Amino acid sequence: MTIRTSSTAAVLARAAAMAGYAPSVHNTQPWRWTIRPDRMELTAVRSRQLPAIDPDGRLLMISCGAALHHARTALTAAGWDYTVDRLPVPDQPDLLAVLTPTVHREPDAAAARLVQTVELRHTDRRPVSDTQLPEATLTQVVAAAEAEGIACGLLTGEHVFDLAAAASRADAVEKADPEIQDELTYWIGRHDRLGIPPGTLTGEQPATTVPVRDFGQPGALPSGPGHDRAARYAVLFGASDEPSCWLRAGEALSAAWLTATRLGASVLPLSAVIEVPVTRTALRRAIDDLGWPFLVLRIGIADPDHPGAAHPPRLPIAQIVDLEEVRHLLGRD
């Protein structure tokens, strides 16, 4: 069944709004959607790229890929099939994807359950509890990531300690870089719905096997008593190190994280080890040189006795969704 143009615009606008809840590096939200009468276009916002931490734009692309997956999930939950054209115009590298709805079916129950987790999903930097993650949960999280065309390799034994050593070295390298430290400071405690609210940072560095990023200033969140002994670590990696794979890695991140949230698990992305070339090379050896690592995921069960931070604020819809071309279809003239 073909939908009317006004209905198409409304469906796409709702999907773009849902995509605004996607995770992004330091909550930079580096995306913008343009709604056309028959499609939606995802564009990178380079002014919100992190030039010191992410000079190649890898983390920006991963962030935008997460937004793309959120939009896709919203369309599927509403019962719409669609086509996705990723990086469709070679000489327009910031046009990342075009989503075009095609056929309407019954709403998808599995996607609807994922949509229900979108506003629940958040970054929890506290140690996870000592409760062991059920293997069935871990299997589903890994499968969700790999369904997006990106490998998700679990680290075990000595490879976890290799990751810990690489993360420690990455932390030392970045602490010694004044440009990176200035950039981190700039993105903490802003009042424009961007960046990292202090309430999502722990008051002291948590005791963990694999260090989490030290933001250089204490937050307002109690770190809790845990030590991450029950945490599991996975690496998202691909066969090539190029923007198309980075975008896919973001889609895999979103799929894994929403699945984990639905199953009661906590996910913390660890990107510092990816940001420093020498530690990224060490991490590649930890996955036996099978591919290029894009992101590390810590997966576990959050401590139920120590509530974590709420979802950080998001930009208003008007700042991330361009409705100008369809405003008359939506009755907003």
Score class of each variant (00 low, 15 high):
G199D: 11
A170P: 12
A318K: 12
T200W: 11
S244T: 09
V11M: 13
V326S: 13
A272V: 01
S24G: 05
G65H: 08
G219H: 03
V141F: 13
A71V: 08
A207T: 02
P312L: 06
P55Q: 07
I188L: 07
L247T: 09
P37I: 07
V326D: 15
L95I: 00
G291P: 14
V25T: 05
L60W: 11
L133F: 11
A151F: 06
R332W: 12
A145K: 11
W33L: 14
A255V: 00
L201M: 15
A97H: 15
D162R: 14
P225E: 12
K175R: 15
T156C: 14
V267D: 05
E275H: 02
A164D: 03
Q140D: 06
G308V: 05
D81F: 10
V210T: 06
A255C: 04
R121M: 05
D333P: 04
W246R: 00
D130Q: 02
A302R: 07
V278R: 13
S7M: 12
I3F: 01
A145S: 13
V142L: 14
S24E: 01
A256S: 01
L75Y: 08
R327L: 15
H104L: 08
A166K: 01
G157P: 00
A309M: 13
R284N: 07
D192P: 11
D91S: 11
A170D: 09
L50K: 04
W80A: 06
T137G: 07
L12Y: 04
Q140T: 11
A249C: 03
R121S: 00
G79S: 00
A112C: 07
P307C: 03
M18C: 09
S244M: 04
S168Q: 09
S254C: 02
L96D: 03
G153F: 01
A234S: 10
N27Q: 08
I3Q: 00
A71E: 02
A282N: 06
S24C: 02
